[in-house]
């Protein structure tokens, strides 16, 4: 592997540059994926049948907590990447661990939120609206869950192998993924929760 030292570590080899470009393209596909989900959501949002409408089940507090946790985690992983560029392995690991903890917090809130919906009678099968609601949120949640494992693996690798072109590349790509999930959440927050809550 030829290492180009004029570049940041994560860009320093040809394969690293390919990986990052490839991942950006993958994120393009992910945008289409979530874009489709949002389109379906907008199409089905009023098709509530006998079930509740958004305003009847959404609660602002857990949603704000989820938003706060995920946005903070996105900021923290930015700090982690900064630490990585400075070569500070300890700080980087600490920030990554904090990111994942915030992610776990987000998931915990989301799971309780889902349980509340079920208790209120809004299940996956209630209406077209609840089906698409759970599917959209669930797809995002599944991405976060997958990200938790991925992030954990990266932390373990950095701990064992240090900050190398390979691990730096992986960490950087993971941070892109995590920021992306944050962006998707902002859309969910705005167009599903805020719009839903103002429905009454």
């Amino acid at each position: 592997m030829k290492v180009d030292h004029s570049q940041p570590l994560e860009y320093s080899t040809e394969q690293n540059r390919l990986n990052i470009l490839g991942f950006w393209i993958f994120l393009g596909a992910e945008i289409m994926l979530f874009g489709t989900l949002f389109t379906c959501y907008f199409t089905l949002v009023n098709r509530t049948s006998d079930g509740p409408i958004g305003a009847e089940i959404f609660e602002i507090t857990p949603v704000l907590m989820e938003t706060f946790l995920l946005l903070t985690s996105s900021f923290v992983i930015g700090l982690g990447i900064h630490a990585m560029r400075l070569g500070n392995k300890k700080a980087m690991q600490a920030f990554f661990i904090l990111t994942l903890l915030l992610g776990i917090g987000f998931l915990a809130f989301e799971i309780t939120e889902f349980i509340t919906y079920y208790e209120e009678g809004a299940t996956l099968q209630t209406s077209a609206f609840t089906s698409i609601l759970f599917t959209t949120l669930g797809t995002h949640g599944a991405h976060v869950s997958l990200g938790l494992f991925w992030g954990l693996f990266i932390i373990l690798q950095v701990r064992k192998r240090g900050i190398t072109p390979v691990t730096a590349n992986k960490s950087f790509i993971f941070s892109l993924y995590w920021h992306f999930l944050d962006v998707v959440w902002i859309f969910i927050f705005t167009f599903i929760y805020m719009k839903g809550l103002t429905q009454l």
């Binding site: 077209a128 089906s131 698409i132």
Partner: peptide, 19 residues
């Protein structure tokens, strides 16, 4: 969505419940 309609009885494309 199609798979979920078939396996988990969601209501995306059904005749009933707003599909």
């Amino acid at each position: 969505m199609g798979t979920m309609d078939r396996l988990f009885a969601t209501k995306f494309f059904t005749i009933t419940d707003g599909g």
